[in-house]
């Protein structure tokens, strides 16, 4: 029981980092990416390869993974500068599918479908951390660090520029903001921080393959952000906890046929996502509606706006 809870705690921490970093570009920069699992994957593969060939020290694996993910994220920043709305969604989707193919077919590096096995445990100043009891505090600490870092960024002048761009790109531009640069930096930061989650994940499981980094993961993380509350501080963590607890609870229902339990979990999880969208579209930690309405432009309406004006979206 304790092991189960610790395991769940580690996974919630890792997915919370993903949700927080996605929320950073979704909620504050208005960039709705369906390719977040790509950078999770890049972080995991890079971390694993560095740990297996160079050093498992967290101070080596994490920086390298962050740099690699940051550089690769320029592929996502490029369409973010060119297009908005559903066009960007489609571009990020394209990137996600391409990445999955690379993960599963670039066998010499990623191990193909079989993945990478025997990833050494994480090394923290000489201590090897592999037991869940020790790993959970580590992942929690990293989560807090990422949360604090993104909070500081959001409340800095950089964060204010971001929200200004989200609310009105042309207004921000006329105030002399370098819109392309700010957007690019936000995408790079988000991807680099997501890579940290990947490194933790690779060390924790000691095994990774493409299954963990597919479109499903990207949508799961997006669902966590929306269910928790886009553009809020606590929302992504709440969303991550809720969506990971949901299938976990089912394992305790012994009356379900064992062979079908995976399918039933998926059905509940899919329907749960839809039902939460219908009844809590603003998220659990969402701002109150009255308050949201007084803002000139809500992130939701901003996302909607280009959708109703294709000419505007295809810039």
């Amino acid at each position: 029981m304790q092991a189960y809870l610790l395991n769940l705690g580690v996974l919630i921490s890792i997915y919370s980092i993903l949700a927080i970093t996605l929320n950073f570009i979704m909620g504050y920069a208005g960039i709705f990416s369906l390719a977040h699992a790509v950078f999770f994957g890049v972080g995991a593969y890079t971390g694993a390869l560095v740990a297996m060939s160079l050093s498992a020290s967290i101070f080596v694996t994490v920086p390298i993974a962050m740099v690699v993910a940051g550089v690769l994220s320029l592929a996502l920043a490029l369409p973010a500068l060119r297009v908005r709305g559903e066009y960007f969604v489609a571009a990020s989707l394209g990137l996600q599918v391409l990445a999955v193919t690379v993960f599963s077919e670039w066998k010499s590096v990623t191990g193909g479908i079989g993945g990478l096995i025997g990833i050494p445990p994480v090394d923290l100043v000489g201590y090897q951390i592999y037991r869940p009891a020790a790993f959970f505090p580590l992942s929690l600490a990293v989560l807090v660090l990422v949360l604090v870092a993104t909070r500081l960024l959001v409340h800095s002048s950089f964060g204010r520029s971001l929200t200004a761009i989200r609310d009105s790109e042309s207004a921000a531009e006329s105030f002399g903001k370098n819109v392309p640069l700010i957007k690019t930096i936000s995408v790079v930061i988000s991807a680099a921080l997501a890579a940290i989650a990947g490194v933790l994940y690779a060390h924790y499981l000691a095994f990774i393959n493409v299954e963990s980094f597919t479109l499903d993961t990207s949508v799961l993380v997006m669902a966590m952000v929306i269910i928790g509350g886009t553009g809020t501080a606590a929302g992504p963590v709440v969303g991550a906890a809720l969506l990971l607890l949901l299938p976990g609870l089912l394992s305790y229902m012994s009356f379900l046929p064992q062979t079908q339990i995976g399918a039933i979990q998926q059905i509940i999880y899919g329907l749960g996502m839809a039902v939460l969208m219908i009844f809590r579209p603003g998220g659990l930690v969402g701002r109150s509606k009255a308050k949201a309405r007084t803002r000139p432009k809500d992130p939701d309406t901003e996302a909607q706006a280009p959708a109703s004006r294709p000419a505007e979206a295809a810039r």
């Binding site: 039933i264 999880y269 969208m277 579209p281 996302a303």
Partner: peptide
């Protein structure tokens, strides 16, 4: 009817897609 952003609709649609796929699988 309420807010109805593009992505709320997308996630709901994706969720239903997962459910249908697994029901058919069962």
């Amino acid at each position: 009817r309420h807010e109805g952003s593009f992505f709320t609709v997308f996630v709901a649609s994706f969720g239903i897609g997962i459910a249908v796929q697994n029901v058919l699988g069962m």
